[in-house]
Design a protein around this nucleic acid. Structure first.
Lengths: 217, 217
DNA sequence: AATAATTTTTAGACTAGTCTAAAAATAATG
DNA sequence: CATTATTTTTAGACTAGTCTAAAAATTATT
């Protein structure tokens, strides 16, 4: 069994690994958890003894298979709870993160299995992120950033890169939600902004926004 | 804000107060939390500084109004989650306690308000215990133990005194559930057992059982 | 009311998790 | 490739929460 703190480290390493593939540096973990490198070193030793990470001094860490499964299970719980909050408790997608962050640590296999069933076995959370299955397998789809689309190409909005509440509320205001079709009308060279069509209407989108919206072609 | 440990102490004192009315002794708290008296003394000092309990050395503690409200809110959360587990996630009444014990510490007012609404603003948990309202008020009904009924008196089952899973599963086996009418047919003097009628059938009930079943006349 | 039994508190130690500051190792640069 | 800059680890300290063992206060019992 893992402590709350251990679970948070596992999750952080899991997310960092999915980006970089390489061994994860102490500093990267410290930054992601807003803690100090020395604390990370200490915890890594503990996790290494529990055989969820491989660790050699100064070489960073990688999750073991067991560690990956454990971390995926925490992510699974987090995302299922997010779906629950949105679908059953009228939360909006920018309100779910902090609560899910707490709920993900509740220990009860039955609870999660039943929640999964209550929600109809969802495959993605409210931000479009995939929900790992019981074995920790993740269904990765080939989504691309809106910013990589060329003029006159289009796609369906399937996820966000930044899930800060500021960004999510911005999308709400602009009526950009998952499932909507977006077509690039124009790409402006001087500021990399985009002119897009959504819901039959024309909209101007900054580079920052386009870099944080995932589409599926 | 209160730590997990502080919340558990508050809850324990709250439950002990509802039984005894007097100042709660260090030992009583220690027993109820399965910890040592010295740990209790330490924690009591902390709680006293946070103004949730009144404490004088060697005199035991009592909850302040603020402490009572805080504790009632934790109990409210615990019982609402129990209803959720039974009503929405197919838990049986003997399976809910440990999970609710974890869920009660989740911090999010919106979560609890919405959960309350989802469940249709229930007034009692699956064991018949009343759910405190948002202000911490509890609707106490005058329930009595089955063992206090006289011959030929009857009542409706409204709660349990012992909510151990052993006892609850025993009741399940005997088809004794909340809402059922029970009539005392006979009281045996030599072992204090009861002969009762339930669902039109005759059943023999030991003293121990009768001491743990609440009825409303 | 004096002594014994019990309860409660204190003192000091331990663990988990964190931190700062300094030392050691690795990586980058001229 | 030697020196500098950065990263990582170690050493030691701190807090929250717990424990054991001993001291102090209260309660019970002759």
């Amino acid at each position: 069994m893992f402590t709350l703190s251990e679970e948070n480290y596992l999750k952080a390493i899991y997310h960092l690994e999915s980006d970089s593939k390489k061994g994860i540096s102490t500093n990267a973990i410290a930054k992601s958890l807003e803690t100090k490198a020395s604390s990370v070193t200490d915890m890594i030793k503990k996790l290494s003894e529990k055989e969820v990470v491989l660790y050699k001094k100064y070489q960073g860490v990688t999750l073991t298979e067991f560690g990956k499964k454990t971390a995926a299970n925490i992510v699974r719980k987090h995302r299922l709870w997010e779906v629950f909050l949105v679908e059953k408790l009228n939360f909006s997608w920018d309100e779910v993160h902090d609560v899910a962050e707490q709920l993900e640590h509740i220990k009860s296999p039955k609870l999660i299995n039943e929640l999964d069933a209550l929600l109809g076995f969802p495959t993605h959370d409210p931000h479009g992120d995939p929900i790992p299955d019981k074995e920790g397998n993740v269904n990765t789809v080939d989504k691309i950033l809106l910013s990589t689309l060329n003029k006159e190409e289009s796609g369906v909005c399937v996820g966000v890169n930044d899930s800060s509440s500021e960004f999510l509320r911005f999308l709400d205001k602009k009526k950009i939600t998952l499932g909507k079709k977006i077509t690039v009308l124009e790409k402006e060279d001087f500021d990399d902004s985009l002119s897009i069509e959504i819901d039959g209407e024309k909209l101007s989108i900054s580079k920052k926004i386009a870099n944080n919206l995932y589409l599926k072609k």
